[in-house]
Amino acid sequence: MKRRTFFKWSLAGAFIALSGSITARSSMAANRYYKGPVSDHFDGTRFFNPGGVEPNGFGDLLRWRFNGQRATWPDAPDPRATIVKPDAEITGQNLRVTMVGHASMLIQVAGLNILTDPVWSERASPVSFAGPRRVSPPGIRLEDLPRIDIVLISHNHYDHLDQPTIASLAKAHNPTFVTPLGNDVFIRKVAPNAHVVLMDWGDGFDVRNGVSIHCEPAHHWSARGIGDRRKALWAAFVLSTPAGRIYHIGDTGFHDGINYRAAGARYGSFRLAILPIGAYEPRWFMQGQHQNPDEAIEGMLLANASYAVGHHFATIQLTDEAMDAPEKALAAALAKHGVDPARVHALHAGGVFDVPQQRNPA
């Protein structure tokens, strides 16, 4: 690996990866983000995945970073990426998803415009001069967004919680920010007057237009800097709407399908599942926290979702796989599980999916 490339990669991931590589000595440090009762996923100081695995430590991090297996992504923008201007709203039984990039999507349903994990910054990093850099511009310009009603933020990693974007959205749209416990600290730092709904796993609230949002488990972790590992919660979301249910996951490990089975049992079925399919290599390091495309398709089936949108690929290189590897692996997974490719869309920036009516809704 060239010295310049390694330096850029090392500095780029320092806060994202090293923030999770804290020694056990600091494991009981005070939690400055959240104070609440002990639960089956909170020990009074840190959150955890019940029966799950913790992210790898510093030694494994170094082993990964020096493995020499990181694929080279192109410097040029993704040729399949486009820039679109969305409609003002979508009503009736219609459901539309437009890809901004990575895990940022615009969901339009029941007259509401909902953004997921919005990141418009050039880098997923605490600094503007270094960090994982997007290879394509956002598929929607900030100034072209329709009225934004809801912003879902699944956890506090820099590729999902972007404070400059939050500040811009709060100023221009004054939306309701919905996020798991502890993440309000990062939102209010840049948008002190924002309306924030904090949720624990199992919580839910009614929005309007017959839409409600529920907070569900995901197998992941959190960290924003050195010393705050797992001090804010991570989650998936379920949107119950007049047009059908939507299951949105920002990041997750497969976790033996436990959370997918639970979601299917609780909600019956989904019209759409929005699932990560990238950032999964090497498996020995990433498996606990990032599912691969085969696991995503298995999860879709376990949750009884009619259609799916794949994300977390072809925008920001965080892990070792090549830029086009997730889509190739997704095609193989669809064939393996006998799933019609028309049911699963891996959207590039600017891609739009008008989701068909649900198959055999429960």
Rank of each mutant, 00 (worst) to 15 (best):
D162I: 11
L275E: 00
F48V: 13
H160P: 00
H219C: 15
Q357A: 15
W284N: 07
K8L: 12
K171Q: 14
L161H: 05
H348S: 13
H255C: 04
W221E: 07
A110N: 07
N292L: 06
R134E: 02
N94I: 03
T5D: 13
E216D: 06
T91W: 03
L301H: 07
P77C: 09
A308W: 04
F48H: 10
R147E: 14
T91A: 10
Q163I: 08
G244A: 13
E327N: 12
H157T: 15
P137G: 14
I187T: 02
T241S: 07
S125Y: 04
E298S: 11
R3N: 02
A331N: 15
A232D: 06
I213Q: 00
G20I: 08
W120R: 00
M28N: 15
V185E: 09
P146L: 11
F353D: 02
A308K: 01
Q69T: 14
L62H: 09
G299Y: 07
S39N: 10
L61M: 14
P293A: 13
G57R: 15
R283H: 11
R3G: 01
Y307D: 00
H102C: 06
A236W: 00
G204A: 13
P74S: 09
L301T: 11
Q108N: 14
H290P: 02
D87P: 04
R96A: 07
S121Q: 09
